[in-house]
Design a protein around this nucleic acid. Sequence first.
DNA 1: ATATTTGCAAATAATTTGCACGTAA
DNA 2: TTACGTGCAAATTATTTGCAAATAT
Lengths: 130, 130
Amino acid sequence: MGIRADYVTRPREWIASILAREPRFLSAAQIHQGLERDGARVSLSTVYRTLDRLQAKGDITARPDADGEVTYMLCEPTRHHHHAICRSCGRVEDVDCAAMEQFAESLRARNGFELDGHAIEFFGKCGACR
Amino acid sequence: MGIRADYVTRPREWIASILAREPRFLSAAQIHQGLERDGARVSLSTVYRTLDRLQAKGDITARPDADGEVTYMLCEPTRHHHHAICRSCGRVEDVDCAAMEQFAESLRARNGFELDGHAIEFFGKCGACR
DNA sequence: ATATTTGCAAATAATTTGCACGTAA
DNA sequence: TTACGTGCAAATTATTTGCAAATAT
């Protein structure tokens, strides 16, 4: 069967607090370094296990960065939205998907975000697979 | 300095021919397996080195898959476009970005591609970094 | 009391590198 | 003939796992 219980432990609280205050995708190693800076001693394995669990619960979003290293961020997948990612600091801002055709406009207006690129992927079934 | 020359070798021809006939993202390991199936004996290191070189030349596009394993596909970054990726076979079809607001419509009409999801990321400078 | 979590050290898996030998130009 | 490429084995890096000790309930 699946998960049976969920104890509240210091490592988990510490990791959650790092994720809560960083609006950007962080690798397991970066989170581990953040913990050390805070004086919170947690093993890297525990960081990985905690991130896996948070992801399984749907509390965080994981995505491999350009080099393939997996990174994590607190992000509700509940409301469908997209991300605006700053090329210099990595800060992630949420963008709702209502007005797709004015995305550049609204991005600048709402978030002061100056757009200089984007990546889009559509998923589904191709003609051959339907 | 950068690259000084570019010899035409059998390993490079074989790897290029696999990429040329597969309209999907393939990992280094998958390309290596494809080579073995063709009876072409090339070391995995050479596969990696060749892919790095092709990427540096801008001939192929690399992207980490969901597990962080890096995958590669022949893809001109010259004309700006996006990708439609089949969830069952992985086939990639190009999608131009003219009519963003009708993407679902046009996708089905043009490519017989039944859309069931997408991922979008915007890049630029956030308010703090400008 | 006991199920769950943790740390540590060892195991994996993907990717990179050093170097002696092979090959294209 | 010489700069460039390749294979192989070893190194590196990210991540996972086994297990005994610690902790939350």
